[in-house]
Design a protein around this nucleic acid. Sequence first.
DNA 1: GCCATTTGCCTAAAGCCATTAGGCACGTGC
DNA 2: GCACGTGCCTAATGGCTTTAGGCAAATGGC
Lengths: 189, 189
Amino acid sequence: MARAGLTAERLTRAGADLADEVGFERVTVSELARRFDVKVASLYSHLKSSQDLKTRIALLALEELADRAADALAGRAGKDALTALADVYRDYAREHPGRYAAARYRLDPETAAAGAGVRHAHLTRAVLRGYDLTEPDRTHAVRLLGSVFHGYISLEAEGGFSHSAPDTQETWSRVLDALDALLRNWPAP
Amino acid sequence: MARAGLTAERLTRAGADLADEVGFERVTVSELARRFDVKVASLYSHLKSSQDLKTRIALLALEELADRAADALAGRAGKDALTALADVYRDYAREHPGRYAAARYRLDPETAAAGAGVRHAHLTRAVLRGYDLTEPDRTHAVRLLGSVFHGYISLEAEGGFSHSAPDTQETWSRVLDALDALLRNWPAP
DNA sequence: GCCATTTGCCTAAAGCCATTAGGCACGTGC
DNA sequence: GCACGTGCCTAATGGCTTTAGGCAAATGGC
């Protein structure tokens, strides 16, 4: 019988594509086996478990996102950088909803620490270099930005803003304007 | 054989409790049956499906949340109201993580329209009456608040801010200060 | 080119979950 | 005290995950 040439990497990439097609929560070892025209048990030589698969997809997505973000931030500062970073997240979520959901998959602490999560925190901090904030306000601002980006993208994906005026692109621009204004004018305690 | 006295309502409440204990994604018809010391099939006289159960839990959570929010907003305005509403969401999520997750469960449009989702939008709009915003900025602001609340609470629940200074309560206060300042000083386009 | 070994995919089997069909008995209403 | 309906049960199917053990294809030394 011909071999299918499975590897953890190929399975992870296919799993990520599957997530984008059917949703991350519906990614299943069985479905993946079907796509490779292979029996389910065969995947267990390459993956420890279903959770392992999901973890790998999550790490892949985090990495891709961090790469895009680093790219977008190169040579930008201030509001330009803020917008660029925000758009990277939002665009990625729209192009790759399953991967984006995967990036939010809860990892155990060591795995998370080893992954690209740290790069993300770093990149957001880099954006804030363009604003006049000192600790601990800088950390507060990092958390605020993370919350807005993630919150907005989730609500948009869930259809929370759907089909009502004004359109969601308009709101997104105005929200970024507002965040920029806020960061330039961060209130004293 | 003695009857267990199952009803959709009791099952829904027990399901919500189960969600708080083990996480919404691990709520299962089987586990619920175990808790009532009853065979799984018996639940299907009261619930259409596993999805039906989850939907009911989601609607329960949305209702509870809206009740709390309405309560908290009574007699408050301005920053007071903003803080009160924000704290309702955050406290509910911390007391009832499973229910909070359920409240984010994706419902089909008609079910959502029939549920308490509308009340939530209304309550956020009510908070903004204390600020000097006109349409479409008011809608932009509603969406921003929704994003921040949901985003912050998710990240906090996932442990995104965990164990690093400054503590998350401190950030939460400062974020609310910042939002208040922003709403009082919303930038022109 | 051949054999030995490794490695990759397979069959088989068990356990858990969701869901449906059909049966028996408990509680209610007469 | 009886008839009936509802409530919970048994039984069975099918999907997903995971482990154990087997055969065959690739690999590399000779």
